[in-house]
């Protein structure tokens, strides 16, 4: 049983329709996003289901997962806070922001909060260099930018999630 297909038949059909019928493999990236929608990471089972849909091997799907930073083969935070600390943002205080944020919320870079709610990652340039400090949040709902941030702003955001997730 292809559970991914069961769950997202309509979305999968829409995604496949974007590409020529004999080039289904193009759909591998959107399908990985689809699989990640539940839990913010992809399992090996889901990779092989994608392979089945696209008629490629699980290994070929995994190769794509492994190549990109927005795909995760292991669970992390439900919300991944990805702070840009690349050079242009760092010139505008992003590194201090990250340090202070981690201190404030008590989670180290690359680690996940105890309740599994969020993790904090340092990432490369997100094309918002003029609005540092900034980060994006990757979650089941996709990716959302938060720019010109202060530690307090971010803290409030996290508290919001806590409330939402109960």
């Amino acid at each position: 049983m292809n559970q991914l297909h069961e769950k997202y038949a309509k979305e999968i059909a829409e995604i496949l329709a974007k590409y020529p019928a004999d080039r289904k493999r193009s759909a591998v990236m959107p399908l990985i996003y689809l699989a990640q929608r539940d839990g913010n990471y992809i399992t090996k089972q889901e990779m092989s289901e994608i392979g089945e849909i696209l008629e490629i091997t699980t290994t070929e799907v995994a190769s794509i997962v492994g190549f990109y930073t927005l795909y995760h083969d292991k669970p992390g935070g439900k919300y991944r806070i990805q702070v840009c600390t690349d050079m242009p943002c760092a010139l505008r205080g992003a590194e201090e922001f990250l340090v202070n944020l981690c201190e404030n919320v008590g989670v180290k870079v690359g680690e996940t909060s105890e309740d599994g709610l969020f993790s904090i990652e340092a990432v490369m340039c997100l094309a918002a260099c003029d609005k540092a400090p900034m980060f994006q949040v990757q979650s089941d709902d996709g990716i959302e930018y938060h720019e010109n941030q202060t530690v307090e702003d971010t803290r409030a955001l996290i508290d919001g999630w806590k409330k939402k997730e109960g």
Binding site: T57, T59, S63, G66
Partner: peptide, 8 residues
């Protein structure tokens, strides 16, 4: 193709 690259 049952072997492939992973990561980058």
């Amino acid at each position: 193709p049952v072997i492939g690259f992973y990561n980058r």
